[in-house]
Simulated scan of single mutants.
Amino acid sequence: MSVTENVIITAALTGAGDTVGRSPHVPVTPEQIAASAVEAAGAGAAVVHIHVRDPETGAPSRDRTLYREVLERIKETGTDVVINLTAGMGGDLVLDADQPLEKGALDGTDLVGGLDRLPHVEDLLPDICTLDCGSLNFGDQLYISTTEMLRKGARRIQELGVKPELEIFDTGQLWFAKQLLEEGLLDQPTLFQLCMGIPWGAPADPGVLQSMVNFLPPNAQWASFALGRMQMPWVAQSILLGGNVRVGLEDNLYLSRGVKATNGQLVERAVQITESLGATVASPDEARARLGLKPRTA
């Protein structure tokens, strides 16, 4: 695997984590999320990965009207950027450890079927949407995405003509994503996001990343990220192994110790690392060509 020569930078703007109270820079309202997307694109991100939040509480949301407003606000600015919408919301299951069946799903559960995670994708037809490729212990709760949920979701995304970004949190999920490809539920070129350091998925370990890269299907496009202080080292790790990169406030709040970052500042730092390794930063059009996306429309 050779060093990436032209690096696609994705900015993950806000995520669904409990980060709003930990940094004033985490965007919450559609206006803030759109402004952060424009800032990230101006700093060098070819792709923006978008979640939405309840504007009043900051809690994660699946409200399709919020997604629509974000995209409309980005479009109004004339900003050229590839749109990547999460489709992972709706997989959270919280159980009592001692009496899981008796007490059932507890507060914090947001669990729906695979197709019910896609209405905003069906409405807005973004360039890319995510497909979280399996169930796992996600911190202290469960994230549920069964094989049949994934098959149904992948089939519907394929029908819509949207590119799925296959979110891989552990090696078994990569194995199953390759099964989806074998079953004809994914189109070439496939797009993988290797997600490292999420408790309790794949650890942010260079050897683990190398093994996952070795297990990717031929001709796959891929990126990886790691949480917290490992975010910027992982930019270099990904590029040196032939991949693209993701940074942003979804995964890390700091530019340096004690210094809270904006999305634009994190992208600027990723650009600096990319160029210091002798690579160039991909434009949105270059990203579209590499990922097999449709050309930009006015």
Rank of each mutant, 00 (worst) to 15 (best):
S2H: 04
S2V: 06
I8N: 10
A11M: 11
T19W: 09
V20G: 06
G21M: 01
H25W: 11
V26Q: 00
V26S: 00
V26H: 00
P27Y: 04
P27I: 02
T29R: 10
P30L: 08
E31M: 04
I33A: 13
I33F: 15
I33C: 14
V38R: 00
A40C: 10
A41C: 05
G42I: 05
A43N: 05
A43S: 13
A43W: 02
A45I: 07
A45V: 10
A45H: 10
A46L: 00
I50G: 05
H51E: 12
R53G: 03
D54N: 14
D54V: 08
P60G: 06
R62S: 14
D63N: 11
R64K: 08
R73M: 08
R73N: 08
E76A: 15
T77W: 12
T79R: 11
D80I: 02
A87K: 00
G88E: 11
M89N: 13
L93S: 09
V94W: 14
L95H: 04
A97L: 14
D98I: 09
G104V: 04
A105D: 06
D107L: 13
T109G: 07
G113D: 15
L115M: 07
P119W: 08
D123S: 08
L125Y: 02
D132M: 02
G134L: 02
G139E: 08
Q141Y: 11
Q141W: 09
L142F: 15
Y143W: 10
Y143E: 05
I144F: 15
T147F: 11
M149Y: 15
K152Y: 12
K152V: 09
E159Y: 07
L160F: 08
G161Q: 11
K163D: 10
L166R: 09
I168M: 05
G172N: 10
G172M: 06
W175E: 14
F176G: 05
L185G: 14
D187E: 13
Q188P: 12
Q188S: 14
P189W: 00
T190C: 05
L191P: 09
F192D: 10
Q193D: 12
L194A: 05
L194F: 02
M196Y: 09
G201W: 04
P203A: 13
A204T: 06
A204H: 05
D205Q: 12
G207Q: 08
V208K: 13
V208C: 13
L209Q: 03
F215N: 07
P218D: 15
P218E: 15
N219L: 07
Q221Y: 01
F225E: 06
A226G: 08
M230F: 13
Q231Y: 03
P233W: 10
A236W: 01
A236Q: 12
Q237T: 13
L240T: 11
L240N: 08
R246F: 12
V247Q: 07
L253N: 00
Y254P: 02
S256N: 10
S256I: 05
K260E: 01
T262L: 06
T262N: 06
L266W: 00
A270P: 05
L277R: 09
V281T: 12
D285W: 10
E286N: 04
R290G: 02
G292I: 03
G292D: 05
